[in-house]
Design a binder for these strands. Structure first.
Length: 550
DNA sequence: TTCATAGGCGCG
DNA sequence: AAAGCGCGCCTATGAA
């Protein structure tokens, strides 16, 4: 059973039961308290809720303690369907989808109402227009018809919608975060918290010593790459850039000071006290996730930088007393995905257990500075990213000879991209078409810029098929894990980063959570790849602090 | 003063 | 000179 949901004014709304294919299975009903009505029907029968956008509607339910098992997010589904049709970037609102169905003028999407107090959806003074239930019902039915015709899309849209539920729940529950530990870490590395916009003591000290190293009259701002370049040129050491790996190659007393400065300055500006004040409240870090924010299907964030937390700050992620963090990481996910995708028998056999790179190592010649395992890893990464300079050239040749189907799979994706064609993940998530600029550039000449653009597009599509299918797998894992955790009661998903999840759970449930994660990884592999011999092992640790994992 | 871009680096 | 994929966030910088 499905139920379509339209929000109305003042917390009211309208509901209508639907069959799986979207045809109405009963009359529309207007309810004065939409959240209460959803809660009652959720208890009665766990329907799949059909609503315009989980991100706008679900936070208000969570505020009132209401969670739902399943939904169909119309905007996310519309985005996936448009993408599959090569129509990236067209408006995805229910109104826009309805207008497309009727050949009417398609309204542009409203900019996400940023900032301001969170859920304005149920505010009585909400200026946003109420949803139109009839449009919701009609758009949903059209989507179901399209989805049924596309292999993988039923699973893809269900998983994307479940991901939206998880994202809202994680934003609501938050990642357990110790402000005390974070502050102590900052103080230890940077010195006491400075007042005003001053540099912390340790950074100022390094800045002074960097200037001393460049000479008595030096005025270098270490935050300015341009000034650093000039300073090195002035002492006879011209460098192409100030990136850490470039600076490491030159011999000058300022280099180690600069490297230390950059690292600490980054921590201070991106995840320092200002970040702590903004993003951590009541022992929880509540980021804003954007489901499907990356074209490959990975999530993005729109604030808080949840997907770029420096490893050193994992010390601040601490379970509540009596609780534990179950930290789970998919080992070597992308090469395993390639193995399963390509159906390369020899490669899949290597990916059938343990350490994939080690299993491949015997195919690569011994000798030299690199171990055979490292060579296997470089070859794989080059194949998936489109690298292949220096030593990687020979290693790629080995890969091509020994594992021709795996090599051929990403090569075919690269060639499709170079021809301007679309490529898709296993479940059908589709890459954006090349831009008009790209077409103009690559159709006219065969100069350097044109061939560079061609190769760039090839690298993108080459990587897309792997990264996006890995995202498919991770999203299905997340969806099935969420279902299992609901069965366990109190455990909560609190973090998801591409191929890694953290569950916050009472200590006594750590074993059951661990089992649930293993089972979900297996289920995801089966749902995507059927009977592939490739395994998708999870490295799991139940720890009091995130930093203790691995 | 505001805005867009580049350079750099954090994560996978 | 650029160079292997995908992101977000910060500062410096120069144009508007």
């Amino acid at each position: 059973m499905r139920i379509a949901v339209a929000t109305g004014p003042g917390g009211a709304g309208t509901l209508r039961p639907l069959a799986e294919d979207g045809t109405p299975a009963g009359p529309a009903e207007t309810v004065p308290d939409l959240v209460a009505a959803i809660e009652a029907r959720e208890r009665a029968g766990r329907p799949r809720w059909v609503w315009p956008a989980t991100a706008r509607l679900y936070p208000a339910l969570l505020e009132r303690g209401v969670r739902v098992a399943r939904c169909h997010d119309l905007e996310l589904a519309e985005t996936l369907l448009l993408g599959h049709a090569g129509r990236y970037g067209e408006p995805r609102s229910v109104r826009a989808a309805w207008a497309r169905l009727h050949g009417a003028q398609v309204p542009a999407d409203q900019a996400p109402a940023h900032e301001g107090p969170q859920p304005s959806l149920f505010d009585t003074d909400d200026p946003a227009p109420a949803d139109d239930l009839d449009q919701i019902v009609e758009v949903h039915a059209a989507q179901q018809w399209s989805i049924a015709a596309l292999p993988g899309f039923a699973l893809l849209t269900a998983a994307e919608s479940a991901g939206a539920l998880v994202a809202a729940e994680m934003g609501h529950d938050g990642l357990p975060w110790s402000a005390e530990k974070h502050d102590a870490l900052l103080t230890g590395l940077l010195g006491p918290r400075p007042s005003g916009g001053l540099r912390p003591r340790r950074l100022q000290d390094l800045a002074d010593r960097i200037n001393d190293a460049f000479g008595p009259h030096s005025h270098v701002n270490p935050d300015s790459p341009a000034q650093i370049l000039k300073a090195f040129a002035a002492v006879g050491l011209p460098v192409a850039s100030t990136r850490a790996h470039v600076l490491k190659k030159i011999d000058h007393p300022a280099v180690p000071l600069l490297l230390e400065y950059k690292e600490l300055a980054r921590l201070h500006t991106a995840h320092g006290w200002a970040w702590l004040d903004t993003w951590v409240k009541d022992g929880r870090f509540r980021p804003e996730y954007v489901v499907g924010g990356v074209v490959s299907g990975r999530w993005a964030t729109s604030g808080g930088g949840a997907l770029q937390i420096p490893r050193v700050l994992r010390q601040a992620v601490v379970a509540d007393p009596g609780w534990t963090l179950v930290v789970a990481d998919a080992a070597q996910l992308e090469p395993r995905v390639l193995a399963a995708l390509a159906g390369d028998r020899a490669f899949a056999d290597a990916a059938a257990h343990g350490d994939l790179y080690a299993a491949l190592a015997s195919a690569f010649p011994a000798g030299g500075a690199l171990s055979a395992r490292d060579k296997a890893k470089i070859a794989l990464l080059s194949a998936m990213y489109g690298g292949g300079t220096g030593e990687a050239v020979q290693l790629l040749a080995v890969l091509k000879n020994r594992f021709p189907d795996a090599f051929g799979y990403v090569e075919a994706a690269a060639r499709a991209g170079e021809r301007g064609r679309l490529v898709r993940s296993l479940l059908g998530r589709t890459c954006p078409p090349p831009s008009a600029d790209w077409r103009a550039l690559t159709s006219t000449g065969d100069d350097d810029r044109a061939s560079s653009a061609l190769r760039s597009r090839g690298r993108f599509t080459r990587n897309f098929v792997v990264q996006a299918t890995a995202a498919d797998w991770a999203l299905v894992l997340l969806a099935t894990l969420r279902r299992r955790l609901t069965g366990l009661g109190s455990p909560r998903l609190v973090f998801f980063q591409h191929d890694e999840v953290i569950v916050h759970a009472p200590q006594e449930l750590a074993g059951q959570v661990t089992a649930a994660i293993h089972a979900s990884a297996q289920e995801a592999a089966r749902l995507l790849f059927g009977g592939t011999p490739v395994v998708f092992p999870m490295e799991i640790a139940a720890v009091p602090c995130y930093a203790d994992a691995k």
